[in-house]
Amino acid sequence: MTRTVYLNGDYLPETEARVSVFDRGFLMADGVYEVTSVLDGKLIDFAGHCVRLARSLSELEMKNPHSDAEWLAIHRELVARNGIVDGMVYLQVTRGNPGDRDFAYPGPETEPTVVLFTQSKPGLAENPAAKTGWKVISIPDIRWGRRDIKTVQLLYPSMGKMAAKKAGVDDSWFVEEGVVTEGTSNNAYIVKGNKIITRQLSNDILHGITRAAVLRFAVEAQMEVEERPFTIAEAQGADEAFITSASAFVMPVVEVDGKAVGAGKPGAVVTRLREIYLDEMRKAAV
């Protein structure tokens, strides 16, 4: 069935949606995006995604084309039109088409290009990988220095995903100056005893929306949280490890660079965090 997508104010069949070849998102990767999960037809942690979208746009000196209420209405309309029960809504804002190709970009008065589409993922929260866990490898982190901005510059993360696929594992963890930054599309954590360790917020990592919620729930559940970098060796010697993202939620990591983490299977802390996160997010979904 042909999906309905949103493009600059119009709801269109995906086969009819067109963007200019001079759009800076196409020519320069000059744009930002968000992905919001849908469970039981409702949006998960939507307010957090709006806050991060506004921050990303501001950091790139782009105007936000919609209010939070307008964004919510567009998301809900797409979910309804496409009959999404479980899945995701992808949102992208680029600097638009100011004219001919030029490295210098125009001011915030330029009308951005706004695209949204849905992806149906039946049983998204019942991902069987949560029962077995992910295996990851480490690769050098050679991305640009503003990873806190959720831009569409995703070539190296894509290469990292492909490196993992070729190695027969699930994902890659980026390593810079001897410590882990994050996964290709997720934040990374280890667990030692009752302590959750994850890198502190900075320009070096994406400020994950799921990350913020999970750390809040962990503190409420009387778990200790330490925000600092950790090494691959620390991860291999940890009791448990996991990642968080808007689509994987809380996903156990059971192997790092060929070495089992803990017992080599999802542990009690990560399993409990996933349960708490999904339960609380469903309660708060819009």
Score class of each variant (00 low, 15 high):
147 R>P: 05
211 R>L: 09
191 V>E: 02
229 P>W: 00
230 F>K: 01
200 Q>K: 01
123 G>F: 05
203 N>E: 14
178 G>H: 09
128 P>F: 08
188 A>E: 14
195 K>G: 01
164 A>I: 01
201 L>V: 04
138 S>Y: 03
240 E>Y: 10
155 L>V: 10
195 K>F: 05
179 V>E: 08
178 G>T: 07
164 A>P: 05
171 D>W: 02
192 K>W: 08
133 G>M: 07
232 I>F: 05
212 A>F: 08
244 T>D: 03
224 E>M: 04
132 T>W: 09
187 N>R: 12
158 S>G: 14
168 G>A: 06
134 W>E: 14
230 F>N: 02
195 K>L: 05
220 E>H: 08
125 A>G: 01
209 I>D: 00
192 K>L: 08
138 S>R: 07
192 K>Q: 12
157 P>D: 04
167 A>S: 02
221 A>G: 03
231 T>F: 12
169 V>I: 14
164 A>C: 05
122 P>L: 00
177 E>H: 15
122 P>A: 04
144 W>R: 04
229 P>K: 02
175 V>E: 02
175 V>P: 07
190 I>R: 06
140 P>N: 05
144 W>K: 04
197 I>P: 00
231 T>K: 14
233 A>P: 11
170 D>E: 06
162 M>K: 08
173 W>G: 01
219 V>K: 14
234 E>P: 13
124 L>Q: 11
190 I>F: 05
229 P>F: 03
165 K>G: 07
197 I>C: 03
146 R>F: 12
120 S>F: 13
177 E>S: 11
